[in-house]
Design a protein around this nucleic acid. Structure first.
Lengths: 336, 336
DNA sequence: CTGAAAGCGCTAACAA
DNA sequence: TTGTTAGCGCTTTCAG
């Protein structure tokens, strides 16, 4: 493996000149030509490790994410990668499975590797664990003080879900969330839903079902609830919102099994609006997160942080959600 | 930032001893204790960059993938990351958008970074571009000679799709593939389908529709075909297989719009069997790729390659696919 | 088992 | 502009 010395010797210049050439500093055209020739003759490729050691910085970014195997996270990962790449950063993909210990290991690794920084979407107290000097922007997480935050407006999304159901004639509104992972984002969604219902005096209830590995428990609980709804008096005017598309999908499938049809028997709105791919048109009505904006904002903030570490106030960026009308809600008929 | 010298001084030992301690070589217990104390007092963290420069190796693995924003690739990425992590490798996620130039840039980067190697899923002639000394295992790609290959048995999958439709009473079999990206994998799927039909004298046809960015063209072509099928004589016994779940999903939605129901009007089988998440039960019948096995096999091969570069024969691993019965095919009624 | 010393390949400061 | 030189922080001989 040829190194810079070999190139310098071959080109009859000094190592410094080769370095200058490589870093696009001014060199005599004559020298440039000889260096180019030497490089291609020797198949020289510059050693990034040495450069990073010397300059004390790299353009690796550690991206910590619970999973990529979900439409929302897949899309987010895709968008973040694209935004990072546009700024010449490289992504080290770290999947935490929502496990605090794994997250901490990734942070340790980030420290050892002297990476440019971290972008994380974590629902634990990870931020407390990382050195305040490490450039970090966190997504979807309630601020802990040190680090910039980018998230969508979960509270407004919760309200929106309730409102859309309300406007579609639902007389009984139901919110289904998770018993376990009660992250700030999830709480905000529920709070928005609740507030709307209380302010407008809707008839509503909140359920917390099992989640995570307890998917079978979730299904049982959901089945019981649907059973109960089917036999209820107001069976025809029910609207269900969930804290996540995944739950809504489960509910939908269970309803299918029970021969209850959506949106005839009840209307259903998920949360995230995750698309399976760029061209996907989901059938599930949902509160759609502005994934691309989140990604772009997170990376932009990150870059500011990594470039000049002097920003005094800590940004809190909150992006608006929107209602995506799929096929699990009724269409609103104009009154005109 | 404290470095190894500082630790050595603080612990009253030499730098070599600290290095030995860190690398789990034998050190006097007394020394070990003092070093530990020094490390935690100084908040010392080892600089991985320097170590990599000195040892001339790293445990980064470049993973090149067309996208992660598709159920199949999301799952594959998830599984590869997990397998890599288990072996203490770190993944640099490189999304190529199936663009050869981007792929080449990633390879260049891999060379500069002196990474441990590359795992790629590429449909272009990427393998020709990379130095044969670079550890590389490629997924889903027809062998070019130098590098190990891991793929699922696409040909058998194509046959299987035809057979399953045949066994479900379809009298007319249709295969829909892509006009553009005709990768080896896609060709094999189609070849399997074709061979089965010819061998068993089925009535079949092959269509190549637009793909990629031309999604609207695809939809138009698909709509025309369905229209035509609806009016045909044998309208009730049609089976459609596609080269990809994405196409099948598009077909399904178009059928829905046209009020044709699946599997009543026609039966439909996709390819990949991509799950949206670990708990997902897709409604689409499909030829399921053994994603986890692919990931594990690829990483295992990679690791062999990275450890001892002496393997003489180049492995070709082909994993069996299976039929996943969703709701877009009829159930087979036993003849008993 | 430990300490001293060489050097991985590069950049940046300085002098020419 | 260019050449010279001093490290970045670590691992790894080699002598002791």
């Amino acid at each position: 493996m040829a190194n810079m010395n070999d190139v310098a010797r071959e080109a009859n210049v000094s190592r410094g000149t080769v370095s200058n050439y490589l870093n696009k500093n001014k060199v005599r055209p004559e020298a440039a030509r000889r260096i180019e020739a030497a490089i291609s003759k020797l198949h020289y490729v510059r050693n990034a490790t040495a450069r990073e050691l010397r300059t004390q910085r790299s353009n690796y970014v550690v991206f910590i994410v619970p999973t990529v195997w979900t439409p929302f996270f897949a899309e987010l990962t895709y968008d973040i990668q694209a935004a990072l790449q546009a700024l010449e950063y490289k992504m080290i993909l770290c999947i935490s499975n929502s496990n605090y210990d794994e997250e901490k290991e990734y942070v340790d690794m980030a420290n050892e590797q002297k990476v440019a920084g971290i972008i994380s979407i974590s629902y634990s107290q990870l931020n407390d664990y990382v050195d305040p000097h490490m450039p970090l922007v966190s997504i979807e997480k309630e601020p802990t003080g040190h680090f910039p935050l980018v998230s969508s407006d979960n509270y407004a999304g919760g309200r929106m879900a309730a409102e859309e159901l309300d406007q579609r004639g639902c007389k009984r509104l139901i919110f289904i969330g998770s018993k376990h992972l009660a992250s700030d984002a999830m709480k905000a969604r529920q709070a928005g839903f609740t507030d709307y219902c209380q302010e407008l005096h809707c008839n509503f209830s909140i359920y917390h079902f099992a989640s995570g590995r307890h998917i079978q428990d979730f299904r049982n609980e959901a089945r019981d609830l649907l059973q109960q709804l089917r036999n209820g008096a107001d069976a025809k005017n029910i609207g269900i919102a969930t804290s996540t598309d995944e739950y809504a999908l489960e509910i939908f499938r269970i309803a299918e099994d029970m021969k209850m049809s959506v949106p005839e028997h009840f209307q259903l709105i998920g949360f995230d609006g995750g698309k399976i791919s760029a061209n996907d048109q989901p059938f599930l009505s949902s509160i759609r997160q502005p994934v691309k904006q989140i990604a772009d904002a997170a990376v932009a903030e990150f870059n500011k942080l990594a470039e000049n570490k002097t920003s005094v106030e800590v940004p809190r960026i909150m992006l608006p959600v929107s209602f995506y009308e799929g096929k699990t809600t009724k269409r609103i008929v104009s009154n005109q």
